[in-house]
Design a protein around this nucleic acid. Structure first.
Length: 818
RNA sequence: GCCGGAGUGGCGGAACAGGCAGACGCGCACGACUCAAAAUCGUGUACCUUCGGGUAUGUGGGUUCGAUUCCCACCUUCGGCACCA
């Protein structure tokens, strides 16, 4: 072979920064709106500027980038932007810990991460970068709030909210985790606090959010969202207290109405005040107090025994006329349904446990088919199955098939209830008693009431000079002057809202701001919107299934109803990646010491190798453990590619060798194209490795320099370009091809060349492999059968046994059944 | 408890519509090169075997000529939800 010193060494540390700078200078990834070109909006979830780019960011973004590059080579006008979700708690936590201003901390992190992101060699359009904490961004976050307010989608209410005593902030119910109800961010158990808060009417959209028509989203994400929205059909039934106050309940089982032997109110229910007798008052008050500190109590009791207190009051069952006691218990939640339930202990397990705990009467009113009529005294569990109605006044004897309909009709006819639908999804609480967020642009005037800041005065700027140490109050409230202003209506003295907005609000519309980050007439340039929206492919972690991905869908629909956006959905196709685990197979964390640092890997192997390994080592949607030896294989591969293409060889190859090379090249192209389209990234790299192995064999057989060799290298580099953009560009240039490989067309598969010359016919006896016969692809069924029967191995296995049946799968397999 | 993924060699994984299980890579073993090592290249590598073959895709059943793939039950594991009336 030739002297290896004659060709340059593969040095990623030289070629990678060189090409990155060139691509950026040439604006290679800055698409212009072009109605003659098909657009492709590829979006990856924007990172939070936590300080360091994690290997998880690489894992999320690299395949997304590779696919965006693939689409670009296919001829699409591809837009692949990036930005920073820059508001949020970690900045304030860091500020408190290191005594650094949240703004300074955030922007320093962004500066650092920009460099790290560039080192990945992604085809980001940096021109479109947004930072959600920039006034020119949050001006429009505030503007959206005002549009929602003006259209009745934003409202204020007093509400018992979860409060984290550590972060000193209110948490949305969705942000409270675990059995001990701890804070999502810091893990501290939460307490309850009553505050006046801003909400968005997400629940108005519950039904529409269940519709995924036209969306290519993973089934499991849709299922998670459907469970989250939690639609249930049932009836609204109005009971009355003995004093005549109505108590509305929701039930999915109106057919069990005659079995309601008591009622349970949530401890926070407003009617508790009215129904509680003076004798029970102290006990009720004590229970209410205890319910407020639910987190502590729950932690102390390992067993989930039912607790509750009798109010002393009675309600009247509207069906039976019976007077039934009213209790309060923490298992009834104010946040779901009406905060009151009719308790049917015979047919609901929770009510059953409660009744047994407190010796309340149990009345059987449903008789399921094939079960002996149950004696309440002997029951050990509730009977939740449907059945015919018993002990149910005029409806006694109604069969199972009609029981629900009969119950609805009875309630409607007697005017105490009607059929209705209840959703678990509740309105989105967006108020945060924090500093580092977009201020809610509202003014409270003693004369005019709640007044939005006029649109031409937006943004309401976040002041820099604040005390951000947590006091339990919003830092903006403690600022000496900030909150004092004048009413835009009457000009009199007024006060600003001092809460800021949930950061999920910022991330609900960032994909719109990317389109025109400097546009000042509105949140986005409508011309850009009409061309680029909706997002064609959205990629990110499935942990956002129920929060971000529901909020952003809601946001789009709400904006549509305000006349701002068009179309029903913002993102057509969604794909979710799994998680990179540490080498020990555990979740990466500093405390475990299993964190993989991408910067070190880039310094050691180069970005292309890291990209290749990220794509290769597991199925993208599943994730898997990192391996520090595994990456060596991808490093070797790229070095082999380098020398395979650059190192000359002599000789000339036989025609069969050249045909085989061409065949493998086109077969690989077919496979790689399919895999890119279908997010099957790991086999893209395997296929490229296989083709390289074939090229190695062909080169040894003298194929170097032939027409087929040159075609194979051309196809090879084009296929490599999306995965390893730098080495592909460098080799492309060294082979004398025109800059840039990333603007070249994706090659066409030559189906004729990709066809196999010979195929392996599988011969089975009773489904067991007995022989393999090389045959022509177009072999007829009868011929295949005869060949199989003539096989020595088959004859030996048959031992003269009679053949019952022969199954021939054309061009693939013959199975002889004896 | 409910919902949703996933269980394939020593390891990560492949098998695109029910038809060759283990592609590709890591690791390991042997060989070449070298004074030697690294790097690189080559060969081999599921298990058992009396060398005929037999057994293998978490476990047990089922459907089928044929199952990693479809159905049922169970086990393990990861993620989400948490008394939802």
């Amino acid at each position: 072979m030739m002297d290896p010193t004659a060709i340059p060494t593969y040095r990623p540390e030289d070629i990678e920064p060189k090409w990155q700078a060139r691509w950026e200078a040439d604006k290679l990834y800055q698409p212009e709106r072009d109605p003659n070109k098909s657009k492709f909006y590829a979006l990856t979830m924007l990172p939070y500027p936590s300080g360091d780019l994690h290997i998880g960011h690489w894992y999320a973004m690299t395949p997304s980038d590779a696919r965006a590059r693939f689409k670009r080579m296919q001829g699409y006008n591809v837009f692949f932007p990036i930005g920073f979700d820059a508001f949020g708690l970690p900045a304030e936590n860091a500020a408190i810990k290191h005594n650094i201003h949240p703004k300074k901390w955030t922007y320093a992190n962004i500066e650092h991460m920009r460099g790290q992101l560039r080192s990945m060699g992604n085809s980001f359009d940096w021109r479109s970068e947004i930072i959600s904490s920039d006034p020119k961004y949050y001006r429009w976050t505030q503007w959206f709030f005002e549009q929602f307010y003006k259209h009745g989608l934003a409202y204020q209410k007093m509400s018992p909210v979860d409060f984290c005593p550590n972060c000193n902030t209110t948490l949305a119910r969705e942000q409270v985790h675990g059995e001990d109800r701890h804070c999502e961010r810091c893990g501290t158990p939460v307490i309850r606090k009553d505050l006046k808060q801003w909400f968005f009417k997400t629940s108005d959209y519950a039904e529409e959010l269940l519709n995924y028509e036209g969306l290519d989203w993973p089934e499991f994400i849709k299922t998670l969202q459907q469970n989250w929205i939690g639609k249930s059909q049932g009836a609204s039934i109005t009971f009355k207290t003995e004093a005549g106050d109505p108590i509305e309940v929701f039930t999915t089982r109106p057919d069990t109405l005659w079995g309601a032997t008591f009622m349970v109110l949530s401890p926070e229910h407003p009617l508790v005040e009215n129904v509680t007798t003076s004798a029970q008052l102290d006990e009720v008050r004590a229970y209410q107090d205890q319910a407020k500190r639910q987190s502590d109590i729950q932690r102390e009791s390992a067993t989930r025994e039912k607790t509750g207190v009798f109010t002393g009051g009675y309600a009247i069952n509207p069906a039976s006329g019976e007077h039934i006691p009213i209790w309060i218990a923490d298992y009834v939640l104010m946040g779901y349904g009406t905060g009151a339930v009719m308790a049917v202990p015979a047919h609901d397990q929770r009510d059953f446990e409660f009744a047994r705990q407190f010796n309340l009467p149990i009345k059987v009113v449903i008789h399921p088919n094939g079960v002996n009529l149950i004696d309440p005294d002997e029951m050990t569990a509730a009977v939740e199955a449907h059945g015919s109605m018993v002990n149910s006044g005029p409806l006694t004897g109604t069969p199972e098939s009609e029981s629900m309909a009969a119950a609805f009709r009875f309630a409607e006819e007697n005017e105490f209830g009607f059929g209705t639908t209840s959703y678990r999804l509740h309105d989105w609480l967006i108020s945060r008693q924090r500093y580092w967020g977009a201020p809610i642009p509202m003014i409270y005037c003693p004369t005019c009431g709640t007044v939005p800041v006029p649109e031409d005065q937006l943004p309401v700027l976040l002041p820099d000079d604040v005390e951000w140490l947590p006091t339990g109050e919003s830092p903006l409230k403690l600022h000496p002057t900030w909150r004092f202003t004048t009413c835009p209506n009457c000009g009199g003295p007024a006060e600003r809202e001092t809460d800021t907005m949930d950061t999920f609000m910022c991330s609900s519309w960032y994909h719109l701001r990317y389109l025109s980050p400097d546009f000042s007439e509105g949140p986005f340039d409508p011309a850009q919107y009409n061309y680029w929206m909706p997002v064609d492919t959205y990629t990110g972690g499935s942990e956002h299934a129920t929060m971000h991905l529901i909020y952003t869908r809601f946001f789009h629909k709400a904006a549509r109803d305000c006349g701002i956006t068009s179309g029903d959905e913002p993102m057509l196709q969604l794909r979710n990646q799994g998680m990179v685990l540490g080498e020990d197979g555990e979740k990466m964390s500093k405390s475990r010491g299993n964190v993989v640092n991408p910067d070190d890997l880039v310094a050691r192997y180069g970005a292309d190798t890291v990209r290749a390994y990220i794509i290769f080592f597991c199925r993208w949607e599943l994730g898997g453990p990192w391996s520090s030896t595994g990456i060596e294989g991808n490093s070797r591969w790229l070095r082999r590619v380098w020398y395979m293409l650059l190192e000359p060889a002599e000789g000339s190859a036989e025609p069969e060798v050249l045909r085989a090379l061409r065949r493998k090249a086109h077969q690989t192209l077919k496979r790689v194209s399919y895999d890119f389209e279908n997010f099957e990234f790991n086999t893209i790299v395997s296929s490229l490795m296989e083709l390289l192995n074939e090229m190695g064999r062909a080169k040894n057989a003298g194929a170097f320099g032939s027409e087929e060799w040159n075609e194979a290298t051309d196809i090879y580099l084009r296929m490599l370009a999306p995965v390893c953009p730098h080495i592909a560009e460098e080799l492309w240039q060294r082979l004398g091809k025109p800059y840039s490989i990333h603007t070249q067309a994706w090659p066409q598969v030559d189906e004729e060349a990709a066809k196999d010359e010979m195929i392996t016919l599988i011969v089975q006896v009773n489904g067991k492999l007995r022989d393999r016969i090389l045959v022509e692809p177009g072999i007829g069924d009868e011929e295949a059968k005869q060949l199989a029967l003539a096989s020595d191995a088959v004859q030996q296995t048959l031992e003269g046994r009679p053949i019952r049946k022969v199954i021939v799968v054309p061009g693939r397999l013959v199975n002889i059944v004896v």
